Simulated scan of single mutants.
Amino acid sequence: MSSLESDWFVYILKCCDNTLYTGITVDLLRRVDEHNGSPKGAKYTKARRPVELLYSEKCDDKSSASKREIAIKKLSKIKKLELVG
């Protein structure tokens, strides 16, 4: 299955400094591993390792995942934590 046909996810990570990071991916486990120990991890999370996956949400496609990511990034930290539950 190509990434065009794969499920997309929006996710929230908790960094070691208690900040939150939001992103999108087609492979949650791989992406969390990248954030924790790979040069492919985001610049933001590289300085805040280890990270922990707090939340993920399945999306229909990359476009809807990107739109949801933007919406989540606009939320306050309190609202993001409420979303996480």
Rank of each mutant, 00 (worst) to 15 (best):
M1G: 12
S2I: 00
S2R: 02
E5S: 02
E5H: 04
E5T: 02
S6A: 03
D7A: 01
F9T: 05
F9E: 04
F9S: 02
V10S: 05
V10R: 02
V10N: 03
Y11N: 09
I12P: 08
L13F: 14
K14A: 03
C15H: 15
C16H: 12
C16G: 05
C16L: 05
T19R: 13
Y21S: 04
Y21V: 07
T22V: 15
T22D: 04
I24V: 13
I24N: 05
D27Q: 07
D27H: 11
L29T: 15
R30M: 12
R31C: 07
V32Q: 11
V32M: 08
E34G: 01
E34Y: 14
H35F: 12
H35M: 09
N36I: 13
G37W: 07
S38E: 12
S38N: 15
S38W: 14
K40Y: 13
G41V: 07
A42W: 12
K43Q: 14
Y44C: 11
K46M: 09
R48E: 08
R48T: 08
R48D: 05
R49T: 13
V51C: 15
E52D: 07
L53D: 06
L54W: 08
Y55M: 02
S56L: 00
S56G: 01
E57S: 06
K58Y: 01
K58R: 10
C59K: 07
D60Q: 01
D60R: 04
D60N: 02
K62E: 09
K62N: 04
K62G: 04
S63G: 02
S63I: 05
S64L: 00
S64A: 03
S66I: 02
K67T: 12
K67Q: 13
E69H: 01
E69M: 01
E69N: 06
E69C: 00
I70P: 00
I70S: 08
S76C: 12
I78M: 08
K79V: 05
K79Q: 15
L81T: 06
L81V: 06
E82S: 11
L83W: 07
L83Q: 10
